[in-house]
Write a protein that binds this DNA or RNA. Sequence first.
RNA 1: GGCGAGUUGGCGGAGUGGUUACGCAGCGGAUUGCAAAUCCGUGUACAGGAGUUCGAUUCUCCUACUCGCCUCCA
Length: 465
Amino acid sequence: MTDIQLYNTRTRQKQRLEPLDPANVRMYVCGPTVYDRAHLGNARPVVVFDVLYRLLRHVYGADHVTYVRNFTDVDDKINAAALARKQAGDPRPLEELIRERTEETIGWYHADMDALGALRPGQEPRATEFIGAMIAMIEDLIAKGHAYAAEGHVLFRVRSYKDYGALSGRSVDDMIAGARVEVAPFKEDPMDFVLWKPSDDDLPGWDSPWGRGRPGWHIECSAMSFELLGPSFDIHGGGIDLQFPHHENEIAQSCCAHPEGGFATIWLHNEMLQVEGKKMSKSLGNFFTVRDLLEQGVPGEVIRFVFLSTHYRKPMDWTAEKAREAEATLRKWRGLVAGIEPAPSPAPEVTEALCDDLNTAGAIAALHRLAGAGDLAGLKASAGLLGLLGEDLGAWADAPVADLGGWAERLAAARAAAMDSKDFAEVDRLKALLIGAGVEVRMSKAGVELVPGAGFDPARLEALE
RNA sequence: GGCGAGUUGGCGGAGUGGUUACGCAGCGGAUUGCAAAUCCGUGUACAGGAGUUCGAUUCUCCUACUCGCCUCCA
């Protein structure tokens, strides 16, 4: 069995993945809050963990990997969006507006992530479908002394879990010293966090032992991972920004509710995405969604390639220049592997790179070597492990349909004449026209070859006829 | 203030205690009427300082700088 080494944030070192059950390798990744289009930063973990998912399926078998990624559809931003519609005059009940908003957003999310070539996880639970499980877990935590109800809220008693802070390397005392915690009179300790909070009539809510309310953010992942993967599973992933507090709180909840389990064995966190060297933010005006990029004509496969060209644990800078280079590389490779039957398995060099803590940049370098060595079957198969060069993402690279035969004949005839007359004016004229229309002109002793290039525009040629 | 990550050739970006990836750009050559495409060749860079070592870009410490999280934002 191939060894997969992964950097475990919890232990701060690489370790060998040793699945609790190799027949069912289990991975949970924190998914999006579905209130709006996914921005580019949201897409990085999706692509990163998609590659891991593909690698796990390759190593353990496609039927032996369970991948769960949740949809957070209980959230104040969603409520705000729905409330805004209601105040704009929509007569429907709030619950319906919320459901409509989340449905719509999930549809967008699927479309956008599909465009990046990300396989859909086997299970995509929604928080709203697991409210009962959350309430049960909260009750259990109260019974075990790890949580307490106060003024319609239920809070997790951070001091009751001695390892709190272990994942992110903080101590409760340090954090309180930092004094950036919300103080509330009903909290026993400023660090205690909300498991359940009351909802007024303008907010979605569910009946609970503590009155009508809604869950806090963190409990959903604890409840859903337990329901779908059990008290112990192999991998938990997400963006590094989730390390604290979200994942810290998940660990506290899950380990206290299910001390019989170990929760996640390996914690993986991808670093953040930047744009042209700066954090993507609305105020800087460099904020954009995946859909924005796709609509600008940046193919999903190009986005994917750019993401994978930087190791997931390093900040990734999105630049237009990288997109340009990625597109050129992919176009070239697609030309090479067109019509080639992929090898039965990926090249060892590529698999080994990925097995070394998802060294996707190293894997891409290996792809370059395969291309250079002319191992096109190997290139195609290996790229497939990275989710590249597949049929599903290739439409962008297909040249527009156009018959260039007439142009080729004219050019060839002019060239033949020029060879005798030594007057190449007509040849150069035709060549300039073709190049201007985005056609790559290749002339050799063997003859004239016209290849539609990246910016090929058949309309411009027709206008010249 | 607390915690953490990072600083590699013109650019991007891997990696390694000693044989110096890979891509793009550049340069030289082959080829071409000229080009394009292609092919061949070409570049000893690892923030600064100290230490460990026979030897450090790679390990340790210090300094500088950059960035992230700690706050709804992946």
